[in-house]
Every structure is written in C-alpha cells, then in structure tokens.
C-alpha cells in the first residue's frame, strides 16, 4: 500500500471518478454492523473495565474504590491465592495447547500433505470431527471415558496390564488440569491442522517436482520446502491458540465444575471470573461484579500484551 499507483483513488479515477469512492453515503453500509459491534462489544468491554474500579451490591455498582479490587486480587490473604492459582493454571492450560495441540496439528498437516498417502480425505475429516462437537458434550463424554471405576480408559489400561496407570485422572490435583487441557487439545487439533494444511497447499507443485527429480528424501522435502512455509504460520497459530484458550471456560466447567475441583487445581481465569463476577460461590451465591470486572480487565490486558508480544516475536523472526 505504499506505491502511489496502488491507491484506489489514483488507479480508478479514469473509470469511476474519484467522487463515488469518497461519498459519505458509504458509511450507511457500515453503520448497522458498526452500531451492533460498538453497542454490544466495544462499549460493554470498556464499561466493564470501568466497573473494575467500583464496588456495590449486586447490579448496583455505585461506590468508587480506586484500585481496591486489584489490590484484593493481588494481595488479599483469601482472594490472592485463588487469583494467582487461576492465573497460573491458565498459562498451563495454554502451554499444553501450544505444545500438544499445535505439534500434533503440525505433524498431521505434514503427514496429510504427503501425496502418496491414501485416505487423506478420511483422516482430515476425522481430525476435524471433535471441533464440531459442543464442549459440553466433549467434557461429559471424556468424564465418562476417564471414570476411575468403570471408564473405558482405565478398563483398557487394566486389560493390557497397566493397572498402576489406571488413575483417577480427574480427581488428582496433579493430573486434572493437564488431562482437561489434553481433552481440549483433542477437540481443537483440527484447527491448526487445517491452517498448516492450507499453507502447505499454497506451495507450487513444481517445487516438489524439482525435489523429486533431485531425489530428495521425504524428510528433506519437509525440511527444505515445507517448513519454511510453515514457520510464519506458526505465529498465526500461536496467536489463535493464545486468544482462544486464555479465556477458556466451558471445558473446565464441564469436567471440573465451576470450582475447578479438586481443590481449585483446575481453576482457570474463565471459571474464576464466572464464580466471582457472575454466579457467586455455592452455597451463598452472591457475585462481586466489581471484583469480576477486575479479573476481566486483567485478562484483557494480558491478552493484549500477549498478542502484541507474539506479533513482535514473529515479525522479528521474519
């Protein structure tokens, strides 16, 4: 967009006159979309940020308290451990997706790009199936699969002589969050697979032909032709994974409840936000919307900082 000839105004003047491209009436086309977007996304988002400086009873957040809500989150004896626990767990949740889901996605895409492989269509369809399921369904299904006493996973482990590994996966503090992250990776691995596949499909056919004439091995083709195309895509996938998972909620809610049981070991920012700002905690159930808004704001800021940092990182690599 830096060359003068690329500017629509200059290039098109000869056909369509500059006037029509500058007419304010174009705005009318944008207005409905913009109105909905501003009213129900941008405004409530910014207003929620403002609410994080207030406290009150229920919906009436009328007392300005400055940074008190943040102070509570960061240092209150009872609240801070919950917040930092959820904050840390969210990073773990994200890291598992980054490592497992995206590595698998990359591997699947490379395998599916092999022209000699049969059944590519079938495998591609299968890999994406879980992404079409509701998280409620996935979560419940895997909860049944992993049941310590009659779940098929443990029955199978026992049958092949690995009784020691037949653990209560969703009951131990050490395993619950990683297992839930893996289930979520299982569900979404189709997305990076598709993105990487699309990138690979954009490689011109003659590259491969040239490589074949040279007698390049499969691994050499991957290393020299495919990976260079995939590296920039990894940045995109990384950002999508980050924004998609940093505010996750459903899968933890479905598999570990609103508390991220056991003992908050699977509690992430999404569940903590729900419990604090929206639902209140069982058995009393009184939400603290101001505190919830503060959690939302921190999530927002972290997301923004994370995305900018990752953009920087991928940009500098180029």
């Amino acid at each position: 967009m830096t060359h003068a000839s690329d500017k629509p105004g200059t290039a098109r003047r000869s056909y369509w006159g500059v006037g029509i491209y500058r007419r304010p009436s174009w705005f009318l086309y944008i207005l409905p979309a913009l109105a909905v977007y501003v009213a129900f996304m941008a405004f409530p988002l910014l207003a929620s940020l403002k609410l994080s400086f207030y406290t009150g009873n229920g919906f009436r957040l009328d007392t300005f308290v400055g940074f008190d809500n943040y102070k509570k989150l960061f240092s209150d004896v009872d609240i801070a451990p919950r917040f930092w626990g959820a904050f840390g767990n969210t990073w773990i949740f994200f890291a598992v997706h980054m490592l497992v889901q995206n590595s698998l996605g990359l591997m699947f895409a490379l395998m599916l790009s092999n022209k000699r492989l049969r059944g590519v269509g079938f495998f591609r369809t299968v890999i994406f199936i879980p992404a079409t399921l509701a998280i409620v369904v996935t979560g419940f299904l895997w909860k049944l699969m992993l049941d310590p006493n009659f779940g098929p996973v443990n029955l199978l482990l026992e049958r092949i002589g690995l009784r020691a590994l037949a653990l209560p996966w969703l009951g131990l503090e050490e395993t619950t969050l990683p297992i839930i992250s893996l289930v979520s990776s299982w569900q979404w691995v189709g997305i990076p697979t598709m993105i990487f596949t699309a990138a690979l499909q954009s490689i011109p056919e003659d590259y491969f032909e040239a490589a074949q004439i040279d007698g390049a091995s499969g691994w050499q083709v991957i290393k020299l032709i495919k990976l260079p195309i995939l590296v920039p895509m990894m940045g995109v996938v990384g950002i999508l994974t980050f924004t998609g998972n940093f505010n996750a909620f459903d899968v933890v809610y479905a598999m570990a409840g609103a508390n991220g049981a056991p003992n908050y070991s699977a509690d992430i920012l999404g569940t903590y936000f729900y419990r604090t700002g929206i639902a209140g905690k069982h058995p009393v159930g009184i939400p603290d919307m101001g505190l919830g808004a503060a959690i939302a704001t921190i999530t927002f800021v972290t997301l923004l900082a994370g995305v900018l940092a990752m953009r920087r990182l991928t940009a500098s690599r180029k």
Partner: peptide, 11 residues
C-alpha cells in the same frame, strides 16, 4: 472407592 477423588455424586 478406588480413585474416590474422581468419583462424582451420580457415579
């Protein structure tokens, strides 16, 4: 039960 920590009320 074995693995009681992962046993929910319905189970």
């Amino acid at each position: 039960p074995r693995g009681y920590a992962a046993v929910d009320y319905n189970s």
